[in-house]
Amino acid sequence: MTAKPSIGMAGIGLMGHGIARNLLRHGYPLAVLEHAGNQPLDELLAAGATTRASGAQLAAGADVVILCVTGSPQVEAVLLGDGGVLQGLRPGAVVIDCSTAIPTSTERVAQAVAAAGGRFLDAPMTRTPKEAAEGRLNLLVGGDAALFAECRPILASFAENITHAGPVGAGHRMKLLHNYVSLGFVALLAEAAACSERAGIDPQVLVQVLAQGGGGGAALERLKPYLLARDPSGLRFFMSNAQKDLGYYATMAEDGGAAHAIADGVLATYERAVQQGGAQALVPELVSLLAQGGAR
């Protein structure tokens, strides 16, 4: 791999746009896959990015292909579908999947990449679009340790904390564990805030008491702007993505024979929230939906 390998990227959404921006800022040649779901590309194109019409074309010009799409169906489609990445993958090229995916699907995809002559890392991320834009994501990486070390400079261009979680699939397993805990905390706080609202408690008092006791932490900080001013920007994460991630966690837990009764309750809360508030509602809006009884 050269000092600045050429990179192809699929998935220029809220998170992917920040990743792409930082890759360019660090001097990596970058091509992005044209897709209707992309965020506006003007800034990236002005910085030197180019576009490709298919996954195969993207891979044909790339030493490394980074995926930042919604979930396992999209990962499988962009890699394995007609005109997909594997049809243009260079021998020895690396596929890095930064999406959130079902680990058993990840393992199958990694095998397909290897059969096509490529190498694979799963590297899902935590944090928000703000940190993505700042190059300060957290990455949880699964795959061969030597390949991880080889690719670390690329990952470090858009991530602050990078953890090698284990073999292929371990990154996605750790991401689902993280998101279950994170979104579970948010759901618990949202339900408590909804109860507090219906009981007539001043939101300032609620936030102060929780912050000074056992309710403090990242989840409260992200919900606080919504609790105090109905500003959802503290957690720009779609309700449908929360539902998807928790569904993936439930699948992983069930596949592994692990307990998941609490996870089932959290998933049901987000499912009802999507039904009542819509897929594009942001997660902090769960507070209002619960207060109204819509996601009860």
Score class of each variant (00 low, 15 high):
217 G>T: 02
179 N>C: 10
141 V>G: 12
207 V>G: 00
226 Y>Q: 07
157 S>G: 09
157 S>A: 15
197 E>S: 14
214 G>I: 02
208 Q>T: 13
162 I>V: 13
217 G>C: 00
142 G>R: 05
224 K>S: 05
225 P>S: 09
195 C>N: 06
163 T>I: 08
190 A>Y: 06
198 R>V: 09
135 G>Q: 13
135 G>K: 07
204 Q>T: 11
162 I>P: 04
219 A>D: 11
179 N>Y: 10
133 A>G: 12
166 G>W: 00
183 L>Q: 09
136 R>L: 13
167 P>I: 08
147 L>N: 07
156 A>I: 10
189 L>E: 08
129 P>I: 12
218 A>Q: 13
140 L>I: 11
181 V>I: 11
153 P>D: 08
148 F>A: 08
172 H>S: 13
214 G>P: 01
161 N>P: 01
205 V>L: 06
168 V>T: 14
210 L>I: 04
140 L>C: 11
147 L>I: 13
164 H>K: 01
168 V>Q: 04
201 I>T: 12
190 A>Q: 05
196 S>I: 00
195 C>A: 13
173 R>H: 11
160 E>Y: 05
183 L>R: 01
196 S>W: 02
154 I>M: 10
176 L>E: 05
218 A>D: 12
187 A>H: 07
181 V>P: 00
204 Q>C: 04
132 A>V: 07
169 G>S: 07
218 A>L: 15
166 G>P: 05
222 R>E: 07
185 F>S: 13
200 G>A: 08
198 R>F: 08
130 K>S: 03
140 L>F: 15
163 T>P: 02
196 S>M: 04
195 C>L: 14
205 V>M: 01
213 G>R: 01
226 Y>P: 08
167 P>R: 02
158 F>L: 06
192 A>P: 01
201 I>G: 01
227 L>C: 07
220 L>A: 14
182 S>F: 11
190 A>N: 04
204 Q>P: 00
175 K>A: 15
201 I>Y: 03
204 Q>M: 00
220 L>D: 15
181 V>F: 02
199 A>S: 12
205 V>E: 00
175 K>L: 10
141 V>I: 13
188 L>S: 13
210 L>W: 10
154 I>V: 15
188 L>C: 11
139 L>G: 10
189 L>F: 12
156 A>S: 15
181 V>S: 00
168 V>E: 05
205 V>T: 10
221 E>I: 00
217 G>A: 01
210 L>T: 06
188 L>D: 08
203 P>N: 04
